[in-house]
Design a protein around this nucleic acid. Structure first.
Length: 597
DNA sequence: AAAAAAG
């Protein structure tokens, strides 16, 4: 009873507000955010004539036939939100608040500016594809719009990071993109800026929908990520970038009450950030339609396309109502991009640019990697030793943050319990905990309240946790890519980090790739590990996913002339067709990427 | 074999 009444009220209120004295719009039309104040009154008086296109609308190659294919723009904006959102909370308001708590606790300033650009100076970059738009050196060179520029200043971003310098012009040029890149250095911004800017410009043609459920919303951009916490993080960042641009960002993920998310959606959504399960739910309830999607971004794209996720992603991207490749712009980001996954991913892309922002020798050098031989039964006491040592390294009375990865959820609980019993304040994050518990754990860790976090792979990717001094692989993962992502939780934004792994016979299959990785990162490889690696290379101890070039860094379209790709990982220049290889033969072997995302 | 993601 109460529910249906509330729903009714929630449903009709914005509709009335948006159109006041006219008949309710039945057909959606895209109104760029900067015109929405006017649009609300304009559409009321001009119901029968097509809505004016924004003056600076630029035709996008990929979309210029969308009008004929999908129907001409109509009146009425599907999101029923005429005008800027006056209730928009200033995400910068508590400048020293939430996100900065950790920094404050450590007596440091502004994590956002903490990027150490010197660490990036000589980062090798490879691009391939046809007519690759050239990189820029400053934000000023790109016309992102004044509102967005102001937010960039508020974020204290002074100049674009390497991934931004390359990815933003490519995306603004309307091209699809597969990028091997680093989050810590602004990966989220690299796909958010072009999306926000594009939405503000009203680029391309809106796609018409058949009238369906009145409460259906039509986001223009979709960002998918593999974990709830990562979606939250992306949402938080995207909200900063879109502040006062009129572009509305909404997040939807499982484990949280759906009603609140539905209410947020009903207030209007331009950019939807979501985890796959909850999005499918919303699509099946017809509360969200993907018909108007003009931008699709997959964060941690290789994870999104691996066995566990691929069917869901295919369903969302190929079997719902999303415009096909070419009629939308698609951006895939990850630090690791095995070529098998690249092949899968190419289904979603159209004439795309491949971009690899690699590590230079110095990038993963920021993370000191250690491997110790530890029997299962000795792991706990060994961890204890590390933590005792870590205690001495505390900053301002706070213990440095240590992130401990384990294999299983049960193992995580057990270890947390044991640590607490031994007076090490620890908490844990894994998929068997409630969402509330997960978020609490992460917050408590970030603030230094609980300086030890025991985690499963749920925390392996993308999470930006400042001040993680030490990553311990209590249990090593089976996949070297997961190792790369895990250790990338430390040594972020150009800062130094330490990663310690406990290795024993159970990890024999990882020996070779681990030894290779460490060698390429100029780390000291223990002799016993080298011997292990040599042994396992006989036994076929290769990683399941590849025989060689298993890291990102290389466009799989360029495979072919070389037996196993990777040894010519970096060509020198940018652009060039598929076949052109600069042939930098040095050092990168089977492809080390950044240890970051 | 495990983890993640809907309830």
């Amino acid at each position: 009873m109460l529910n249906s009444w509330a729903d009714l009220a929630a449903n009709s209120a914005p509709e009335n507000a948006g159109t006041s004295n006219s008949t309710a719009p039945s057909r959606p039309v895209y109104v760029p955010p900067h015109l929405r104040n006017r649009a609300a009154s304009a559409s009321a008086s001009a119901e029968s004539s097509p809505a004016p296109l924004p003056p600076n609308v630029s035709t996008n190659n990929n979309n210029n036939n969308a009008g004929s294919r999908w129907g001409a723009p109509r009146n009425g904006w599907g999101n029923r939100n005429g005008g800027w959102d006056r209730r928009e909370v200033n995400p910068f308001g508590d400048q020293e608040g939430a996100a900065e708590e950790g920094a404050a606790a450590f007596g440091e300033q502004q994590e956002n500016t903490g990027i150490n650009f010197d660490a990036y100076e000589d980062i090798p970059v490879e691009t391939s594809g046809e007519n690759v738009p050239p990189p820029v050196n400053t934000f000023a060179e790109i016309d992102l719009g004044e509102a967005l520029n102001q937010n960039i200043r508020r974020c204290k971003y002074v100049k674009p990071t390497p991934v931004q310098r390359h990815a933003i012009p490519i995306s603004l040029g309307g091209r699809d993109l597969m990028a091997c890149a680093q989050t810590g250095s602004g990966k989220t911004a690299a796909f958010c800026f072009p999306i926000i800017s594009g939405i503000m410009r009203g680029q391309g043609q809106p796609l018409q929908r058949p009238p369906r459920g009145v409460r259906t919303v039509y986001p223009l951009a979709l960002v998918l990520s593999p974990t709830r916490e990562l979606s939250m993080q992306i949402h938080d960042e995207a909200r900063k970038f879109s502040y006062q641009t009129g572009v509305r960002v909404v997040v939807a993920y499982g484990g949280a009450p759906i009603n609140q998310q539905l209410r947020e959606l009903e207030r209007g959504v331009d950019i939807l950030v979501a985890t796959p399960g909850r999005l499918v739910d919303l699509l099946e309830r017809a509360r969200v339609s993907l018909q108007m999607i003009r931008y699709l971004a997959l964060d941690e794209a290789d994870r999104m396309l691996d066995m566990g996720f691929e069917p869901q992603i295919r369903k969302i991207v190929e079997q719902m109502d999303m415009p096909p490749p070419g009629a939308r712009q698609t951006m895939l980001f990850s630090a690791t991009f095995p070529k098998e996954i690249q092949r899968l991913a190419s289904d979603f892309l159209s004439n795309y640019v491949f971009l690899a922002v690699g590590r230079v020798g110095s990038s993963t050098d920021l993370i000191v990697q250690r491997v110790e031989y530890v029997q299962e039964s000795d792991k706990r006491s060994h961890l204890m030793d590390l933590l005792h040592a870590q205690r001495a390294n505390g900053v301002q009375g706070k213990q440095a943050l240590t992130l401990v990865f384990v294999e299983t959820k049960k193992g995580a609980d057990a270890l947390e319990h044991w640590l607490c019993r031994n007076s090490f304040p620890a908490t844990t994050i894994h998929g068997d905990r409630t969402q509330q518990e997960r978020e609490l754990a992460l917050r408590s860790f970030k603030t230094g309240n609980t300086p030890i976090l025991v985690a499963t792979d749920v925390a392996a990717r993308g999470l930006d946790i400042p001040h993680v001094a030490h990553v311990v692989n209590f249990d090593l993962p089976n996949d070297i890519d997961d190792y790369v992502h895990r250790i990338g939780r430390t040594g972020r934004a150009g800062k130094k980090g330490l990663a310690t792994a406990f290795f024993n016979d159970n990890n024999a299959s990882l020996a070779r790739s681990l030894a290779d990785l460490m060698q390429e990162a100029n780390q000291e490889v223990p002799d016993w590990l080298s011997r292990y690696a040599a042994r396992s290379s006989y036994g076929g101890g290769r990683n399941r996913r590849s025989g060689g070039s298993r890291f990102g860094g290389r466009d799989f379209r360029r495979e072919g002339s070389f037996g196993r790709g990777g040894s010519d990982y970096y060509s020198t220049g940018n652009s060039g067709g598929y076949g052109s290889s600069g042939g930098y033969g040095g050092g990168y072997g089977p492809g080390v990427t950044s240890a970051w995302d």
